[in-house]
Design a protein around this nucleic acid. Structure first.
Lengths: 250, 250
DNA sequence: CGTTGGCTTGAAAACCATCAAATAGGGTGG
DNA sequence: CCACCCTATTTGATGGTTTTCAAGCCAACG
């Protein structure tokens, strides 16, 4: 469950990347596309439950998630786990490790993944010769910061019900923006993941999700959650957070 | 209390910046220093309690904090407040607003401040002509992310006592690294700030801080906190977080 | 058909918020 | 200088929220 499968080599050329065609991502110039394409050394696939990056690792790789769901998390010595954020297609994975030099969180797959693998040691080349892409990397880091700010507000000042509503509205919003789920969005989570995101026990999480289910806002199906009324979830959470903006895809 | 005082113009030349001499910050090349110096348009002073940047503002400025303490926060509609992180000398202020275009949090001064003011519209020039500085901006954003990750772990999975110990150890560590307080560090906070950082009520915060006081780890003095035993605070928190690294100062 | 992982529920205990009130200190106007 | 007000801190009592403990259900899978 914790092994990363060997790379299967390149399959999706950046110029024909199916993600890039989506309106959620900004257009790249030919020169930018060419660099990104050369920056990518291959692809990596992983199965659900696989640990992609581990806390403490020094030579962490840099990836972009091409398809699938994953999450970042940290653990305390006694086993308590906190999920920090979720990773969806188009997200950079491992930037902290690449820039600062050491990973301080781990990354685990929620579903089967495909990742684009980049050459970390060419990151400075990216900044030197494609300053627009360098700015984009900063933009993506600022976007992550914005999400973490929202999560902190949630953990610190929202009630259990508000937190749960916020989380599901948030994940629904992100899934929508990259075109996951035709019509209804299915989020591949267990209630344990929700608990470890919201800072609640599994028991109380279950009771809280039941309230949302009884209001007809979500439906829990095996290992996944279907969002039925995203706007009402936002209202319950008191979340006026922004809808996703057009963003770069590296 | 919420007015930013007018700029007092340039007083500290970047080449003789007292902060830059500290071991906490990496050496800059002459070219880098020259650019940063031209990037800076002046200084801004603010008194304790002043709001430097407001949620929702579109034309946010970009600053570096030269001296003093401040904090970033968000609010819910009904007045609940969450403090997201603290700003100490050397920290970039307003990067999210500068990069993404809109502030989604506010910034307030905890003590009298001096800020270096930068021309936001020359940020692309920084990335174009000084890729090393562009990388530095990303590095600082990744550092902020790392701190937010730690805070999320704290809010989600630590007990009230552990959270309080973590926060004070964290602030002590940061103050030490920029040379605040000769010998003992004094953190300019009220218990309301601590409560709004830890996601606790003011009453419970008071009782929790009292336990740390009774253990001889801190001393509460009026509107500030003195850390007496930072290592024991870390131990109580179970925080093995990194000591500050050498970092860029823009 | 037994095992496993995920979901569900009830009861008791711990934790934390809220309410209420008292204390202490700084600042201001008289 | 003193009376007064304001903010910050402190403490006790009470009630609500959440955790912990315990148990049971169900579907998937060998």
């Amino acid at each position: 469950m914790s092994l990363v499968l060997p790379s299967t080599g390149r399959r999706v050329p950046c110029e024909q990347c199916p993600l890039r065609k989506r309106a959620a991502f900004r257009d790249f110039s030919a020169a930018e596309l060419k660099f990104v394409s050369s920056f990518k050394t291959g692809e990596l696939t992983a199965e659900a439950g696989a640990v992609i990056l581990s806390e403490g690792a020094h030579s962490a790789h840099l990836f972009t998630l091409l398809s699938g769901w994953a999450f970042r998390f940290k653990m305390l010595d006694d086993g308590r786990r906190q999920i920090l954020n979720y990773l969806l297609p188009g997200d950079l994975v491992g930037l902290q490790g690449s820039v600062i030099g050491e990973m301080e969180h781990s990354v685990e797959a929620l579903s089967p993944l495909v990742l684009c693998v980049f050459q970390r040691d060419r990151l400075d080349e990216l900044f030197r010769h494609h300053s627009g892409l360098g700015f984009d990397v900063t933009w993506l880091a600022a976007r992550e910061e914005r999400m973490l700010d929202d999560h902190l507000l949630s953990l610190g000042r929202r009630t259990a019900l508000e937190r749960a509503a916020y989380l599901l509205a948030f994940l629904h919003e992100r899934a929508q923006s990259v075109g996951l789920g035709n019509g209804t969005v299915h989020i591949p989570l267990t209630q344990q993941h929700v608990a470890d995101t919201l800072g609640l026990s599994i028991v109380h999480t279950n009771k809280t999700l039941r309230k949302l289910t009884n209001k007809g806002l979500i439906r829990w199906m095996g290992r996944s959650c279907e969002v039925l009324d995203a706007l009402e979830l936002r209202r319950v959470a008191g979340w006026e957070g922004p809808f996703e903006r057009v963003r770069p895809l590296i």
